[in-house]
Amino acid sequence: MAGTAFTPSILSRPVYAGLVSRGATPAIMLAEGEGALALMALADHDPAVMGHAHIIHIPAGTGHGAALQALGPAMYHEGPTLPAVLPRLRKALGDAHMGTALYIAGTEGVIGQVTAEALAAGVAAGAISTEHHGGAARRMQCVHCKGITEDVVTDPFICSHCGLSLFVRDHFSRRLGAFQGVCVDAETPGQIPAMQEIRP
């Protein structure tokens, strides 16, 4: 299984091609929730990938911790949320040598933020492999106040910072790890369309 299939969209919208082994090289692996299944499938396909792997796992209510540890990674860490594991991730990225592979599996918000951290740390885009698991919730930046709203599941939605009603664009910034939200009633203040659930 190579993760969620998304509706084809514009070119800035990320696609998550599924985890592909880069062999027995040093690797940082971050799995959130059902993204753990992607690491298990990866190890099943190529057991050599785990020998130099540092797994950072955010269970998010799932119970895959023991199974991930059983894959035999060189390092294993479990943390409650992405903000909680960020210091460790940044240290790992900062310490990483040229040629270190990065595997990310989980929801779109987590993939986006971890990718942004990696790019900022100088990891080449081609060294990053991603796979989407979980709901279609999006991480959105309000273009007006610049605040980020996590786990957006409706379109439009209300910016958690400035309170404007924003529509959900497919335009995505890898630097920010976020989609763009734009005021939905800018031209006709107060006329806000009914909220729809976001689909993959």
Binding site: I10, L11, S12, R13, R169, D170, H171, F172, S173, R174, R175
Partner: peptide
């Protein structure tokens, strides 16, 4: 900022 040619023209 930081996007490539295809990304910033995506819309």
């Amino acid at each position: 900022i930081g996007m490539n040619f295809f990304e910033w023209h995506a819309p």
